[in-house]
Design a protein around this nucleic acid. Structure first.
Lengths: 145, 145
DNA sequence: CGGGTCACTTGCAAAATGATAGTAACTGCC
DNA sequence: GGCAGTTACTATCATTTTGCAAGTGACCCG
């Protein structure tokens, strides 16, 4: 299954995965968030083959999550920065990280710290309407048509 | 890259993706959440090849996100249910869905409705410590060692 | 007994991925 | 000015994964 597949029906999850539905893409976003914005930084950080990295960067650029910016004309040097859509995806990374920590968190792991409070961030997904964490209130699906 | 790869360093995101880092797996979790718990229901809903579905179900079972339960002895019929780890992953699906709706949400999409209030759920990732949505306060990374 | 459903497995082709090597544009150092 | 080093890739080809189609086995229903 190609990640940039055709229609994906009426499911918003599928719509999201269409654009970032593979592991390398997500890991690239994470690297950029951590400040690794250059090609070779990502390549060595991820241990990814260069052809694959090129392809993923192109796909993420097409999908509108990152953009390439030349920060030096001579020598020609580029960096990849998050677009607004890319930045908006970062909280999901944090939520995945929290889940990974809970269920596969053996050993010391990288954390995110709130600069002001000095406390580790504890990401939780809530419903903005009720303020309640998802999973604590009964929900139902509503399908179009 | 196999999704059940070796160690993944100190990054909790990577730890999470080790277990659900492919698109079919996530779509399967979504289907189970929606009540499509049986093999053929998923196969027709997803349009996935049966060998791939079998492999993904086995992988998700190994990863501890779902479990197989026989609900009928004769004829032998099984369903796949979420484990606690699997249910804990659902809020992330909701967050991905919200992102997909925002950035790729043309046309009518399935929604989740809070049964009590009747309002559509609006998933947001917050820091449980501060209550602030992620992305609204400065954070820094803290690496082990 | 014969079709139909459900839950798969098997075999093989097509596509994606990954390792390795090579290219191109420079810089900086003697 | 020449040569190693860095950065950012592309090209080639082997390996792996995915996907399609067909087949299997257990059962039920008429």
């Amino acid at each position: 299954m190609a990640i940039d597949e055709n229609n994906s029906g009426t499911c918003p999850v599928d719509r999201g995965l269409m654009r970032v539905g593979d592991r390398w893409s997500i890991l690239i976003l994470r690297d950029i968030e951590r400040g690794l914005t250059r090609y070779d930084q990502m390549r060595t950080s991820l241990g990814i083959a260069p052809n694959i990295l090129s392809r993923r960067l192109a796909a993420l650029t097409d999908a509108g999550l990152i953009e390439k910016r030349r920060y030096s004309q001579r020598p020609p040097r580029d960096e990849y920065l998050l677009t607004e859509a890319g930045r908006d995806f970062l909280p999901i990374l944090a939520a995945i990280g929290a889940w990974g920590r809970k269920y596969n968190g053996k050993g010391a792991l990288t954390r995110q710290i709130d600069v002001e409070t000095g406390e580790p961030v504890r990401p939780v997904v809530i419903d903005a309407n009720t303020g309640a964490p998802l999973g604590t209130r009964p929900l139902r699906f509503e399908y179009p048509d």
